[in-house]
């Protein structure tokens, strides 16, 4: 999964999609994941980064990451 090239995201978690004109907000962990995706990190690398930084178990994060990815795609922020 890739974040679309022209997506702008600011430190405050504000996301703007210039193609559709929609804007979104995300929480700090969402912000971090989007950044990792922008750096072309794959799912496994993202998981390892988050697990090393946050107090969360693997299966919880896997479920949440799956859900978050779906949201990003539905919102046209990311694409396959």
């Amino acid at each position: 999964m890739k974040i679309k090239k022209n997506i702008a995201i600011s430190e405050s978690g504000f996301i703007f999609n210039p193609t559709t004109g929609d804007s979104f907000s995300t929480n700090p962990i969402g912000f971090e994941i989007i950044h990792l995706l922008k750096e072309d990190k794959n799912k496994e690398e993202i998981k390892q980064t988050i697990l090393s930084r946050y107090a969360v178990d693997e299966s919880t994060f896997e479920k949440d990451f799956y859900d978050f990815s779906t949201l990003l795609q539905n919102s046209q922020i990311a694409e396959e």
Binding site: S10, S12, G13, F14, F16, S23, S25
Partner: peptide
């Protein structure tokens, strides 16, 4: 400017 919308939306 989009910046202003961002400010009121996020802050």
């Amino acid at each position: 400017d989009l910046k202003e919308f961002e400010q009121i939306s996020t802050l």
